[in-house]
């Protein structure tokens, strides 16, 4: 298989398989999680839970007072790489072309040099967050194989995409194919790992906020 055939495979059958597994997994897990329900709570609520669910969705995006100072790497690193990933994925013109082709939706992109800068910052933040996880005994103790695995799955597409654009290590064609392949691996594993929080994060925040409100801790 030459590099052009490799690229055509990842753009063709490879992408087909990856998107297939992704859709299957996402629908399966979303339906299962949201129909799981909860045992009926027979105790009356201490008070009405009001808008605690909705509030929690937003409040948990803001660090509690004092926490940024206490754990700066977690908060700042976390913000930087999440926002960075969103910019790279949704505002780089070739990525928008893919989204438009798959869904019909499109929006303007950002200049490629800016996306390039964001990519470097994102990778730096991810590396710092990883080192923090290794360095801090508590974080290291709490880490399982899945934590290291999902970090790698997320990091590889960013790294290979950047290396392709910068013409590093391998010819562009091969690196682009590796980039697409790494994204396909991410798509395949996303529904079945902790990366599924991309779909459940706001739902679970709402749920917890509502329960807390019901129990008398409204926000």
């Amino acid at each position: 298989m030459n590099e052009m055939q490799f690229l055509t495979w990842v753009r063709g059958p490879g992408l087909d398989i990856a998107i297939g597994i992704f859709l299957l997994g996402v629908l399966w897990r979303l339906i299962e999680i949201y129909t799981l329900g909860r045992k009926q709570d027979v105790a009356p609520g201490r008070q009405r839970d009001g808008a605690s669910g909705l509030h929690t969705v937003f409040r948990r995006s803001v660090p509690p007072p004092g926490m940024v100072r206490k754990s700066p790497v977690t908060y700042i690193g976390g913000y930087v790489f999440h926002i960075g990933l969103a910019i790279i994925v949704f505002l780089f013109a070739p990525h928008i072309a893919l989204i438009r082709d798959l869904t019909g939706l499109s929006w303007p992109g950002l200049p490629s040099q800016f996306v390039d800068l964001v990519t470097v910052v994102t990778m730096a933040a991810m590396v710092v967050v990883l080192f923090d996880r290794i360095n801090k005994p508590a974080k290291r103790y709490l880490s399982t194989f899945q934590d290291w695995f999902t970090w790698t799955l997320t990091f590889l597409p960013v790294l290979t995409g950047w290396m392709a654009v910068q013409h590093l290590l391998l010819p562009y064609t091969t690196m682009l194919a590796l980039h697409i392949l790494s994204v396909e691996l991410l798509l395949i594993f996303l529904p079945f790992t902790k990366l599924f929080h991309t779909f459940t994060v706001f739902g679970s925040r709402w749920y917890l906020g509502k329960i807390n409100g019901h129990r008398g801790v409204p926000v």
């Binding site: 055509t8 992408l15 087909d16 998107i19 072309a97 082709d101």
Partner: peptide, 18 residues
Amino acid sequence: LSMPADPLKMAATAAVVG
């Protein structure tokens, strides 16, 4: 180059199975 080389064939089936 960033678009699929072939039309997606499995998506509909995968959605139903999922």
